[in-house]
Design a protein around this nucleic acid. Structure first.
Lengths: 361, 361
DNA sequence: CACTGCAATGTAATGGATTACATAAAACCG
DNA sequence: CGGTTTTATGTAATCCATTACATTGCAGTG
């Protein structure tokens, strides 16, 4: 065994670049390394895991062999033994949604900093797929889950569920979550419209199944109430967060002849759709109608006019979620926390003082 | 052992819903299942892996126990034994780039259909991170890699490299790739501008390190040449694919007083930046300057005016890449292929007949 | 000097499944 | 009916690293 190894390349090795070599790369095991370095497998393992418990001299020898032979411990064997995979699943409905992809980026950053990797769990809103990713935790193929849903799939594991909720949150549960105060943020957005003189403010809601949407709608109502503006249910339309939905929602309102001088949308994509619908009706933004979104995705800055929106700290949400998950994984007894990050309104060109509005002919 | 299992819940079990139970879920092993079902571990394993080799009666009994106890085989143990993880790494520079996230979606779809999962490898263009993801394959924590770079990191594994190149491609190598014919697509885009009467066509290039950018630039040159328009190097600016870069590039051209009636950009984000730069100079699109992008990301349809662009089959690129990778993983001897998908120009509002142009005062 | 304690290393158990090989029972065949 | 397949199941080896426990040697101490 040792003969094999040393036959291939002599002792005089500054051949460090050989890891790109086309042919003779062989997969090694601790055993081989141990044999060649003339120590036991335990020592090799220790030299790699906790170098400080191995004598200087031995450590050097082992590291030399490891490097020369390009040895990488088999992660699966290690995982099996240590019962940790250093993998976490990020569950989200849609990776092409720029909001989520920025949250993911935050998750990925913290994961990387802590030696974890992120498994992409795009569910396309399918319960089956959601469950199948959750099952990876049961199968010990992943250590935990960050879900960006308002629903936590059942995971048959002992003890503390290694789950963190990001962006969304599950109300009644002992699940840690990170999110923004959607009520307050929505209120602030609508307040701003009110200070601009708007009184007929339409709202394009998201799916009512999602608590954060309920919150945003509540924020909208609260702001109206505070300004003594009676809520007008006819000015509320529902969408599914897509650009198209925003477009359709506003088209609907317009075709119903509703009168409004501002639209607040539950997310930026619907706001972009809303703007398109308004523009294609020949309405000017913000002269005729003001538009406000929610999320502050990358493109909101580049619509014309640029979109006024509630800016969520997307990367921070992801970072914080991953940080929490790591905490739980390191110590299942840390109490669940609900962490609220702050969102703030960024004013751009899509809002202005109250104009005539489409209904005000 | 068997006593434990049956003590917890009697025989009369339509308690299937218990997998959500808060407390008593225990992690099981084949051994326990075998003991309870009164068979050997081998039979349990077979009943789960290749049910057809197990007798009807035994199979039913085992499945009943498995279901009742909520047993999921430990994936790490299986992986160790079978030397397959059913995980692949998707290497990309930036997950927040909508182009990549749609490619990823295609990858994810095919992966899911074939029982694979996708590990997100966002490198943020760091070589170290790129390598660290590549090393996961060496460590047998992943089976293969789909890279969206123009560079394939060295992976110390025996035999065929389990790598597929998507969108980008490595010229000289035996690596399978999927991409579009960038030269032809770029040529078509510029041809179209020529037919609209444009002769002073600026080009916002991407980083020259990337072969596809070189190709797109070549396509641009080719089209000009074919139309007998002398190439004007002063009309070529370089960006890094970001919106901001596109903005800066066009600002630069404008501030240099260059005269052009159309801009072709190496990707949509730069085109969006370009549009912004033009608009903020008071130029009209397309009356004064036409703009063409490349990629056809989701938002291009919603800029105003909507962006004319070369539409890449993003999801298909991802699907095809993953399909190829699975092929390689199933049979390391399949010859490497370069698969070229077709891209087509979609004409929207950002292009029109040659106008006055900024230089044409 | 005998004894304790620590440092360095080794031996072997362990994690949990898969699967080659062995065996037993049943089916088939002339 | 003896012999050959076929079918169903069991036994035990295997994947490869980690780590509890055992061992050895040496320094320190009364």
């Amino acid at each position: 065994m040792s003969a094999q190894g040393s036959r291939r390349k002599g002792q005089g090795g500054d051949d460090t670049r050989t890891d790109v070599a086309p042919q003779p790369v062989r997969v090694r095991t601790v055993k081989e390394i141990a044999a060649i370095a003339n120590v036991s497998v335990a020592t090799v393992s220790r030299a790699l895991q906790r170098p400080e418990v191995v004598s200087e001299e031995t450590r050097r020898r082992i590291h030399e062999v490891v490097k020369r032979l390009g040895y990488t411990p088999n992660a699966m064997a290690r995982n099996l033994r240590t019962a940790r995979t250093r993998l976490v699943v990020a569950l989200l409905p849609d990776i092409a949604n720029p909001f989520f992809s920025e949250v993911i980026r935050g998750i990925e950053q913290v994961a990387y900093e802590n030696g974890y990797s992120v498994l992409l769990g795009e569910t396309q809103s399918s319960l089956v797929r959601e469950q199948s990713y959750a099952d990876m935790v049961a199968a010990r193929q992943a250590d935990g889950i960050i879900t960006m849903f308002h629903r936590v799939p059942p995971i048959p594991v002992e003890g503390r569920l290694p789950v963190v909720n990001a962006c969304e949150y599950v109300k009644d549960s002992a699940i840690s979550s990170v999110y923004v105060d959607n009520v307050a943020a929505a209120t602030a957005a609508v307040d701003y419209l009110v200070t601009l003189g708007h009184r007929d403010i339409a709202f394009v809601a998201g799916p009512a199944t999602s608590p954060i949407c309920v919150d945003r709608e509540q924020g909208y109502r609260l702001a109206l109430q505070r300004a003594n503006i009676p809520a007008n249910p006819a000015l509320v339309a529902v969408g599914d967060f897509s650009i198209e939905a925003g477009e359709r929602a506003v088209e609907l309102l317009l075709s119903q002849g509703q009168s409004f001088s501002a639209v607040f949308c539950s997310n930026d994509e619907m706001a972009i759709g809303a703007m398109r619908a308004l523009l294609s009706r020949g309405l000017r933004i913000p002269e005729d109608v003001s538009v406000v979104g929610f999320d502050d995705i990358r493109f909101s800055r580049y619509t014309s006019p640029a979109l006024t929106t509630v800016s969520q700290p997307k990367t921070a949400l992801g970072r914080e979620a991953m940080t929490m998950l790591i905490e739980i994984l390191n110590d299942p007894d840390v109490p669940p926390r609900k962490r609220v990050l702050s969102a703030e309104l960024v004013v751009r060109g899509s809002t202005g003082p109250r104009g005539r509005g489409p209904g005000a002919r």
